[in-house]
Simulated assay, not measured.
Amino acid sequence: MSSFSASQEELDFPLVTVAGVQMKPKVGRKAENLESTLRFIEAAADQGAQLIVLPELSNSGYVFASRKEAFSLAESIPDGPSTQAWLEIAARRNVTIVAGISERDGERLFNSAVVVGPKGLLGTYRKLHLWGDEHLYFEAGDKGLPIFHTEFGRLAVVICYDGWFPEVYRLLAMRGADIVAMPTNWVPMSGQPENTPAMANTLAMANAHSNALNIVCANRVGIERGQAFIGQSLIVGAQGWPLAGPASYDKEEILFANINLKSTRQARSLNVFNHVLRDRRDDIYDPMLGTGWPRPRH
């Protein structure tokens, strides 16, 4: 498990300690997976983490053999056993948790992330952009891009392939997000040259920089039913540079970083002339991308 430290300059302002958990869920072994998540949450809380991010589908595993199997592993929110366990530990350890979960809503399934805090359920995010065989099991998300208001700042969530769409990060920045939690199950990308950063890491860094967002990417490791996962979890600061990681390719571990929210909001000013949100040419394109969300105020 990785450790972290803060400079004296950082300590002059309130910090948020975030943790990204890199773990190895096992498809179909829900009780074992849930126990692993609780063990990692305890370990992260012991080192002072206030926000803890778990991987995509952390309680169920990822590579389903059929929709019937996917349905059997899904849970309702907040009544299911995984969310109930995360609610209990969040209250007991005074932490906020973002956990990937296979969500059942009636006859529909969603690749979701539940957000729980010390005072209870904050909400659910449903993955907007489905990848590969996910189309066989899940519905595309129908809750948009919510902002979760926490005691340490404005939190948003994306899941894995959502991070390939710059519109997502821009809208979250426009809506005032400070930190984006990304539960993910990154897989190898075809055509990647050797000795280059993972495409997912490059995209996270680019989108963090162009929107002044902190992004906590929590990936999984291992091979599941022939599908490899690449690890390399990452925490990126609002200027686009890594604060922790990339993690290893194949080991379970926890990344930690301290985030300064004052510096985060200041990072949108690149210099005395340029601001990454104010400089948008909204005379040329819709500042809110046609979503109907209120026009931002600066």
Rank of each mutant, 00 (worst) to 15 (best):
G141T: 05
I215L: 14
V53L: 07
A6F: 01
G28I: 10
V276S: 03
E134F: 02
D46P: 00
A173Q: 02
R175V: 00
H149W: 06
V115K: 08
S60N: 05
D46A: 15
L203Y: 10
I41F: 02
M189C: 08
I179A: 04
R295I: 11
N260I: 08
N94V: 01
K68L: 02
I254T: 12
L155I: 08
A91W: 01
E252H: 01
R220T: 12
D133L: 10
K143V: 14
N219T: 09
A200V: 02
G117A: 10
E75I: 08
A238T: 03
Q8W: 02
N59A: 15
V27K: 14
F138W: 05
A113G: 13
S72A: 09
R297G: 07
A99Q: 04
V114C: 14
R220A: 06
C160L: 07
L121F: 12
M199S: 03
N207R: 04
L145K: 10
K127C: 12
L243T: 02
K24S: 09
I77Q: 12
A65L: 13
M288D: 03
V272R: 11
L172M: 13
S7V: 02
L289V: 01
P78W: 13
G222L: 12
E35Y: 03
E224P: 02
A218S: 15
R29D: 13
P188R: 03
I235W: 06
W186K: 02
S7Y: 01
K30F: 06
Q8E: 11
